[in-house]
Simulated assay, not measured.
Amino acid sequence: MSPRAGLDTHTLVLAAAELADEQGIAEVTLAGLAAKLGVRSPSLYNHVNGLKELRTLLAIHGLEQLQTAMEASIVGISGDAAVHAMSRAYVEFARQHPGLYETTLRAPEEGNTSLEEAGGQILSLIINVLAGYELGEEGGLHAVRGLRSILHGFASLKNQGGFGMPLDLEVSLTRLIKTFIAGIRCMRSGEESGKE
């Protein structure tokens, strides 16, 4: 096979994202990607330095796409409405892009500034949405961790078919986020009990 015209790093990342969503992140290999693109595996090394770099680029792409979806969901709104909208966007992104979503979950390796920046952008977005609750810097970070845990757990269970009861999942998510908001309001008012 001859190298395909127009092949570049961006094309590789987009094809790898499709492969991840279709077959799972474990199936994103250089051989699998080459087969998808109709090229020989060695030609991929003209654009990436192996599987590790490809997966890092894929994680950056996933974080950027997740951020875009979350930002779009909160245009023109704030407060509780923004937390609900952002949460729905997060869960929907995970549903539409299960493999790509999985790449967004790992903590950035130290020294990878591009991956750190992409993760930092999402962190900043969530912090800004929660800023109106006046939790302080440390409290805000605890709230971000809590919301991320809630959304990841909900999205993962939903994607894996873990919600078998005939109840509306949108209602469940809405109630869950309302409970989270009530909880962070307690943090702000000093009603939080217990120390780590």
Rank of each mutant, 00 (worst) to 15 (best):
M1C: 09
S2T: 13
R4K: 13
R4G: 01
A5P: 01
A5I: 07
D8M: 07
H10W: 01
A16T: 01
L19W: 03
G24Q: 04
T29E: 05
A31G: 06
L33H: 09
A34Q: 09
K36S: 09
G38I: 02
V39A: 10
R40S: 13
S43Q: 10
S43R: 03
H47A: 08
N49A: 14
N49F: 05
R55Y: 07
T56F: 08
A59L: 03
H61V: 01
L63G: 06
L63A: 12
E64R: 15
Q65G: 15
A69T: 04
M70V: 13
G76C: 04
G76F: 12
S78D: 13
G79I: 04
G79A: 15
H84F: 08
A85H: 08
A89M: 04
E92D: 14
E92S: 12
E92H: 07
E92L: 08
F93S: 07
Q96H: 04
Q96V: 02
P98A: 04
T103Y: 07
T104Y: 05
R106N: 09
A107D: 11
E110A: 14
E110L: 10
G111F: 09
N112A: 02
N112H: 11
S114G: 09
S114R: 14
S114C: 00
L115W: 08
I122M: 06
A131Q: 12
Y133K: 05
L135V: 02
E138Q: 14
E138S: 11
A143S: 12
V144H: 12
V144A: 06
L147W: 05
R148C: 03
S149A: 15
S149P: 04
L151G: 07
H152F: 04
F154V: 06
N159A: 15
Q160P: 00
G162N: 08
M165D: 12
L167P: 00
L167M: 11
L169Q: 14
S172G: 10
L173P: 05
I177H: 09
I181G: 11
R185I: 11
E191Q: 15
E192L: 15
K195C: 03
E196H: 02
E196R: 03
E196Q: 01
